[in-house]
Design a protein around this nucleic acid. Structure first.
Lengths: 181, 181
DNA sequence: CCTAATTACTCAGTATACATCTCTTTATCG
DNA sequence: CGATAAAGAGATGTATACTGAGTAATTAGG
């Protein structure tokens, strides 16, 4: 082993390490670029609708689950609850989504697509499929399913990091023993 | 019957399509979640340094290319040049990066790591590797290289969407015929 | 039935990512 | 050599994404 200097190695040693693990081979870099590229293709195909990938995810989830509450919606789509509120806000300003208090639990806000929202979901479907096709095109067809299966495996295997703190309660450190002072 | 009026499909038909292509099987959703998960793991492993994945990418690129200009740096790391300026700003406020005008082209800003910046790069290396290992852990070891190869293929095959408008000139439609007035 | 804990949401702040516009610097042309 | 075209950097605005703090409504315990 070339562990000549102990914990704090020299600058040149770090450079050697970095050269051995160049940016273009690091999983994190690759995954970020992949996401970036998919977003660019999606945005290009769906340009005429002015809908982003995340907005489209929310819209289709609302299409299949009208009246869902914001927390459940965030869990389905994989975005955190403050972000759900942001995106729904933008969508409702454009008249694609309507929100109201839940009848059964008045803490909750439930969301619905408007007629316009349903029309957008309808009209965007083909564009979304074209974006997917273009994105996967560089991969040989027989590898595509395997690729998606591996991604799914990575997501499920790391599911505990999926959404950092979904219920927001763990950050709230009111432990039962500090009420007195 | 409902109105067949609009372009092609009815609402219920759309729902069938959506059910056939649920969120969890769409490439875009999967890639977004994967990126999200990697960021969460990286941030957790590298928490003590307060460095994000993108910041780390810039730091290691500066380590290997001291004095690189901001545009080239953005091309290497895969982020656009206004974002490079943002991130370098944060890093230089923390004393990790130093910037100055290029001697050869005084329009350009060139960047260097400070001693503190080099120390951070050094100390973070092991944490970064741990984040990578945890991220890839759910995949069987013999699949990991294949997975990274497929991601690389998707990135390279879609390289024209990698960075939407790197040089900023294509968006600038000042056709040579509008200077007179 | 009142209080404590939990839950759902909102708001403010940080960071990444990109488009567009403006300004400065450099290069070129008459 | 001075006008101007070309190129790059910065500022501004939008969108996603998450953290932390705070508010309101519901539920659980005594």
């Amino acid at each position: 082993m070339k562990k000549q200097s102990s914990t704090n190695s020299t600058r040149s040693e770090v450079k050697v390490e970095m050269a051995r693990m160049p940016l273009a081979s690091r999983p994190g870099y690759l995954v970020r670029r992949l996401h970036q590229i998919h977003s660019a293709i999606f945005l290009e195909e769906c340009q005429e609708f002015g809908i982003t990938p995340v907005q489209y995810g929310l819209i289709t989830t609302l299409l299949n689950n009208p009246g869902i509450d914001q927390v459940t919606l965030g869990g389905e789509v994989g975005i955190d609850r403050t972000n759900v509120a942001d995106v729904l806000n933008r969508l409702s300003e454009r008249g694609l989504v309507r929100r109201e208090r839940s009848q059964t639990d008045r803490r909750s806000m439930v969301a619905f697509l408007t007629k316009e929202g349903e029309a957008v979901a309808d009209k965007m479907y083909d564009s979304m499929r074209r974006a997917q096709d273009r994105f996967l095109a560089p991969l040989r067809p027989e590898f595509r399913a395997a690729f998606l299966a591996m991604v799914t495996e990575l997501i499920e295997g790391n599911s505990k990091y999926s959404l950092p703190d979904t219920n927001s309660a763990s950050g709230r450190r009111k432990s039962t023993a500090s009420r007195d002072e």
